[in-house]
Design a protein around this nucleic acid. Structure first.
Lengths: 288, 288
DNA sequence: CGTTTGATTGATATCGCTCAACTTTCGTGG
DNA sequence: CCACGAAAGTTGAGCGATATCAATCAAACG
């Protein structure tokens, strides 16, 4: 912060005066250098770069604010430094389709490169701290730092792979499997961020989860209740505990409702006997 | 072809001796220059480039052959010059999930950049002519030709947008709408390639369409029959005619089976009276 | 507080899957 | 060229997973 006033104005990318109205609301005066940006994206930082050479501005968004809108002219990429968001697509009838739940380290706005207009909308689910990467400036940096360009390709490729996995999941899995995977994926991401991957709380509504997974909110709610009954997780509102991550990860589909009752009884029997710290996989095996 | 022998070996990317066994089978001796490659991808060609400076080799694949495999070390991108393919993902239980149906002008292998191993598998559905773009050489070209690097980002962004649309479609649409959109999308792509977008034949099985759309092959077959009954398309095996593209594009869901019979009767009445060259949209309106 | 938004749960409808029989097409070798 | 088998496609019957509609409950919030 002390070095803030020592930086020449010309060296800072993104003049705040270019920002859309929403972005104005609340912006701290934080700046990050290229090294910090690379670390956030978990890509190798160019060794050749002077830390104070190029700085990227942070902007704060409050829950509910939009980072960018569909159709808005594209000129900057965004990195999430803290907070939680959703990206959505609005179809021709105005229905909202959730595409992703970005969080720390994720890159936003890539879909705007192609047509030079954002193809999706990013909305803060909590207060967020976002780093602005003016696209032009960033790619010209890539030309002087080869590793950076490679990293950019790599990040975009990763996004493509992620979406491929999403497509597979949507078209092949049952509702239970979708919800179970959603939870374990979230857990893994929290882990990577240094938080607990077993115990966390959801930042999104059942409605948003359902949209993301191609299910109705009722089905999401029922499925969470069922996984709770089975002892694989515990849920209370948005508070989640993954009790049997192994079973969750390998779950394909729940046994039919009648059989499920038996399993649930077996579970509660175990609970009553105070056996049940971590009986991982037992259920998973019981239900192919 | 005549200029083939005049090109110094050093200027040609991709020594054939590096290719996997499958790629060996049948390769013509065609080469394309950068200008041709850019045209195929419909991106602006760098003005600064010498046409004979850099050449990219073509390789021919027979129907059924694999262009690349999952897990195989990544080192080259592929452009489809002619022919039809599918890309698939194999899940942990060996089930095949179709991800896309690449054709002329499409870029393959992008998903390999991230982990330096292909994340999907590309298989020829017909005899294909594929251009090899050795990744390293191609990106280093991008460094000397700025427009090329931009174009690469643009193509990857386009792919991300395409997958986003796919996700929306998979999680929001009914079976009928999926199939209807699949057909109109195919038609539009054939149009762009200069073929008829109304009359074409499918290069893939019902099974593959179903996998792509998250449906069973039976549902695909039944839906095609239903659209045929309604006069929106005509189908016979893999021969498709789009009779009412407008209705197809806006179709959300078919009316319930009983109501459908009435509509079908109405249609056949029209047919019998020999009214029905192009009654576009009438049905679309009849079924919200 | 009262109001609003989100979550849970139940009853019922229905879309798409599964299983199965049959037909058609196509490739291959006698 | 035909015969055969394999693969692809069609169609039907029945069922089950998920959506829809609706009522209630809990939490958030001014």
């Amino acid at each position: 912060m002390s070095n803030f006033s020592t930086i020449s104005q010309a060296s800072r990318f993104t003049d705040v005066s270019n920002l859309s109205d929403n972005a104005w609301r609340q912006h701290g005066s934080l700046w990050s250098n290229l090294r910090q940006v690379c670390e956030l994206l978990s890509i190798p930082a160019p060794v050749t770069v002077d830390d104070e050479d190029t700085l990227f501005q942070h902007v704060r968004f409050k829950a509910g604010q939009r980072i960018h809108r569909i159709g808005q002219a594209f000129d900057t990429l965004y990195i999430v430094n803290s907070g939680f968001l959703k990206t959505v697509h609005i179809d021709e009838y105005g229905n909202e389709q959730v595409l992703s739940f970005p969080m720390k380290g994720d890159l936003l706005g890539i879909d705007g490169i192609h047509k030079q207009h954002y193809a999706s909308e990013a909305i803060a689910l909590s207060d967020c701290d976002i780093i602005l990467l003016p696209y032009k400036a960033f790619t010209s940096l890539g030309r002087t730092h080869v590793e950076l360009e490679q990293a950019m390709f790599s990040v975009m490729s990763r996004e493509i792979v992620r979406e491929q996995m999403m497509i597979s999941m949507l078209s092949a899995l049952s509702a239970e499997a979708k919800v179970a995977r959603f939870l374990t994926n979230l857990g893994e991401r929290f882990n990577q961020m240094g938080y607990s991957g077993r115990s966390f709380n959801l930042r999104m509504t059942r409605q948003e989860i359902g949209s993301y997974l191609g299910l109705t909110l009722e089905t999401v709610s029922r499925t969470l209740s069922a996984l709770n009954e089975l002892g694989m997780i515990s849920v209370e509102q948005r508070e989640i505990n993954l009790l049997d991550p192994v079973a969750l990860k390998t779950l394909r589909r729940l046994p039919p409702a009648k059989a499920r009752i038996k399993v649930a009884e077996k579970v509660s029997a175990l609970v009553n006997k105070n056996l049940l710290p971590q009986w991982n996989g037992e259920l998973a095996a019981a239900m192919n």
